Simulated scan of single mutants.
Amino acid sequence: MMSNTDKVRDLWRAFNQRNWQAVTANLADDFGFYDNTLGFGGIGKQSFADYMQAFISKMSDINIFEIDCIEAEGLVVSIASSQGTSDGEEFLPGLPANGKRSGVRFCVIWRFDNAGRITGCEGFYDMLTYLVELGHTTIAPAHEVLHPEIPPHVAAHYV
């Protein structure tokens, strides 16, 4: 029997392959999702596939990698990285594509029913990093403001 973690990893692999049928294969019919960063969500497999495809329309080469999962009863928390090139539709209203690459770590909490179907998910990611890397805003690097002895761009890796 496939573990819930395996189902989440398969979903991300299917996203990278742009296989929308496989992305939604383990979702319950009444699957619900919510993007906390954008304040947006939906119900149903097709709604989720449309949401995922919207990222492709903004960054055609976006991929998900470094997928770490923590599983507990009825839940999987996935922490992963994404990276892509701003080469499509506006990233956000008023922010046109500019050919720059950006990537962030993000977290999704996946919920499962007793039959092992994914019933919902809730995602969190850092929009400010996207905006800075795509050149839409600037901020002082935190390592300069807070602790100059900490080197920049030290990746956090979760086991």
Rank of each mutant, 00 (worst) to 15 (best):
Q46E: 04
K45V: 10
W20T: 13
L128D: 15
N114S: 08
G94F: 01
H136Q: 12
M1G: 09
V132M: 04
S82T: 11
V77K: 15
G99C: 02
I70L: 13
I70K: 13
M2T: 11
G135Q: 09
L131K: 03
S3Q: 12
S81T: 13
T24Q: 02
F15R: 08
Y130R: 07
D35C: 05
D87I: 05
E133Y: 08
T5D: 04
V159A: 15
L27D: 01
A25E: 10
Q17C: 15
F55R: 13
A28I: 05
F33D: 07
H147F: 14
L146H: 13
F48H: 11
Q83A: 11
D126W: 01
A14R: 03
S78M: 11
I109K: 05
P152C: 01
H157L: 11
T24S: 06
F15E: 03
F65A: 11
G99E: 00
F106N: 07
H157Y: 13
M52T: 10
C121G: 06
H136L: 13
R101Q: 15
A28T: 05
L95M: 08
G116T: 10
I79P: 04
E89F: 01
D35P: 04
V154E: 09
S86H: 06
V154Q: 11
F55P: 10
L134T: 02
H143A: 09
V77Q: 14
I139N: 14
K58A: 00
K100W: 03
C107Q: 10
M52R: 11
T5V: 05
D6E: 15
M127N: 14
N114E: 12
R13F: 08
Q17R: 15
I64E: 00
G99P: 03
A140P: 04
V132K: 02
G99R: 01
D30M: 03
